[in-house]
């Protein structure tokens, strides 16, 4: 496949791939070629670590990965970076566009800068860390992912969140956790407003422990006692005429 040979040519064969990362320069290589190489069945044997330079805000970088590899992207990425990730660890050394790690299944995705809207949308598992702030709809329809945000999140975050945990070390926008199912939310800063059926809940020891674990996994240095917990009041689980205005 032509795509592989292009990427291979950027891998310096004099270095040990187990030690030195494979290099891919997206100013010379297309996203298609990069993803083809990362999808190869033997990618982890070929190079366990990958370094991607000049991402230039391109879309769909490192999507659909399904291997125990570590990919570092040096710069800003566009929409859907690390979308549907499984197993792999992807780090963005910059800002991420819309839908970073959307529908992620497992593995770790870390954004050193800010993330645009719908970060971690519908993600089923794994850990998404946003060291900066996330915009609107962070964790929308989340289905089991853990999301830790170092800064703030925008409006409608965790909208229809079904499962998983969202940790916000900064402030939230309006309508946090609207129409929430079973996802749990922890916030250290101020909550601008809660969405329909989202309520503050008691912070019990098991929640402090859970939060401490999430912060540690994300490498965040925050004090658990400053956080509050939010969850579903479960009033919208079955239609009742008296709640009609909340739908």
């Amino acid at each position: 496949m032509a795509a592989l040979s292009t990427v291979d040519s950027t891998v310096d064969s004099t270095v040990d791939p187990a030690v030195e990362p494979a290099l891919v320069d997206l100013s010379l290589t297309t996203v298609r070629e990069l993803n083809t190489a990362l999808h190869a069945p033997d990618v982890a044997d070929k190079a366990a670590r990958w370094r991607v330079t000049s991402p230039g805000g391109k879309h769909s970088i490192a999507v659909g990965l399904d291997a125990d590899i570590d990919v570092v992207i040096e710069g800003h990425v566009g929409y859907y970076c690390a979308g549907m990730n499984k197993t792999a660890t992807v780090t963005v050394e910059g800002n991420a566009g819309v839908g970073v790690a959307e529908n992620m299944m497992s593995g770790t995705v870390r954004v050193r800068g800010n993330a645009s809207q719908s970060a971690g949308a519908t993600a089923h598992g794994g850990l998404l860390v946003i060291e900066g702030s996330a915009a609107a709809r962070c964790g929308i329809s989340m289905k089991g992912v853990d999301i830790v945000v170092g800064g703030d999140v925008g409006h409608m975050s965790a909208f229809m969140g079904q499962a998983g945990r969202l940790v916000v070390c900064g402030d939230t926008g309006d309508a946090l956790g609207d129409s929430l199912y079973e996802a749990r939310i922890y916030v250290a800063g101020t909550v601008k407003s809660l969405g329909a059926d989202c309520v503050e809940k008691e912070m019990r020891p098991e929640h402090l422990a859970e939060l401490a674990g999430l912060l540690a996994a994300a490498g965040m240095d925050a004090d658990v006692v400053s956080f509050r917990r939010f969850g579903s009041a479960r009033r919208l689980y079955n239609f009742h005429v008296d709640n009609a205005s909340a739908y």
Partner: peptide
């Protein structure tokens, strides 16, 4: 946005 979404789905499934 759909144009970008379609490209993502193509990338994930290698076109």
């Amino acid at each position: 946005d759909l144009e970008i979404k379609i490209r993502e789905l193509r990338e994930i499934t290698d076109w």
